[in-house]
Design a protein around this nucleic acid. Sequence first.
DNA 1: GTGACTTTGTGCATCGCTTCACAAAAGGAT
DNA 2: ATCCTTTTGTGAAGCGATGCACAAAGTCAC
Lengths: 225, 225
Amino acid sequence: MKSPTQSRDRGIPEATVARLPLYLRALHGMAERAITTVSSEDLASAAGVNSAKLRKDLSHLGSYGTRGVGYDVEYLVYQISRELGLTQDWAVAIVGVGNLGRALANYGGFVSRGFRIAALVDADPEVVGDDIAGLNVEHIDELEAVIKRRGVSIVVLATPAEAAQGLCDRVVAVGVTSILNFAPVVLAVPESVDVRKVDLSIELQILAFHEQRKAGGPLMAVDSQ
Amino acid sequence: MKSPTQSRDRGIPEATVARLPLYLRALHGMAERAITTVSSEDLASAAGVNSAKLRKDLSHLGSYGTRGVGYDVEYLVYQISRELGLTQDWAVAIVGVGNLGRALANYGGFVSRGFRIAALVDADPEVVGDDIAGLNVEHIDELEAVIKRRGVSIVVLATPAEAAQGLCDRVVAVGVTSILNFAPVVLAVPESVDVRKVDLSIELQILAFHEQRKAGGPLMAVDSQ
DNA sequence: GTGACTTTGTGCATCGCTTCACAAAAGGAT
DNA sequence: ATCCTTTTGTGAAGCGATGCACAAAGTCAC
């Protein structure tokens, strides 16, 4: 019997948080295949990590396994979901409905994880009014109103780089504190706001670096200079 | 017995490699604004890191700065580009031309970084034959032939989860050793193959975790159970 | 050439994450 | 009830990245 307000450690390492969604995905797959119990070894390999790391990660949430047996799939799904905050409803607004914004609006992975796309906003009059993924695209002038009206708490920026900072400032001004940024710029935000960024070209560049190494490794020509 | 140039250390930390594209982006922006010289302090803040880290990162590439002055923007762009392998031509194939594949094909960030989209491939007969971003979509049966013919060395998988592993196996079989995976599965590949994965929903889940903390932080209600 | 000033490059202490290895706990068999 | 097997949870060691703080190296003014 734990003390009511203690609610576990309150200090889950960032690296662990970043892997929880991975475990969750693997567990969902197992639940679908009617697997009721899983060992750290099996779950780890399904998630692509080693089992010691998995066990330590899970131990940060609490002691949810049974020695000699493993983890109950359904129960673990619930515990991880709760820890990540996926048991509550998150209203997401997508700002910028270009190719990427459209892809995100149609991406099934969001909805299935408890995220609800609550609004699409764009500046282009060509696009405003269109229906995408069952949602009406609204004008950027409505941005603040839409966020308040729909209770949006997470904003996805999928705009050109030039527009991102200005829009970021506007959503922060109406109280949004979580932003997922796809625009290739470093956003300046107050301390209290969380920004995560995804830059598709960065991943390619990292691949190119390693590919170059592989190709040149054994007997790379000495570069002039 | 070291060759004349010794090609520097050959052991650049992974964390550094992941940041080089960031610096490169900031430097490109400066070059456009006709800035010729930059201090570690300024470049660091433009890239969103601290200056000590930036200097240490750059020191892994060589000693390209001038004490008392800073770094020559153009020269540094060249050195980082070369280190990342962006001075050579990389042919990229995008497999799966759904919403996401289409967005990627149209994404300017690739081309501007020296990546060339060399092929689009899909299984859907509805889509095969279409022109997207100036390229003809080819049938998935042609996958191996296209990769060989166009000299593709990096493959982007933007397919449904179910199809990803099979297609991955096929491209690995014809010699591809760098894969950027957008499908929400853990791919099994030989040791020699590099896979980087981007899962859009994972980023949202991490945001939700922190958002939940913020909201509940001071006096979070005790959850039942 | 000298001295004041600026900014890099890096040794070092620190921090946080990963991995190992094993005691503790649970279940099943006899 | 006792022993044996399995698998968790975790202390401790190892490893790599971070950030501080400063000597070294360069520029500029005179």
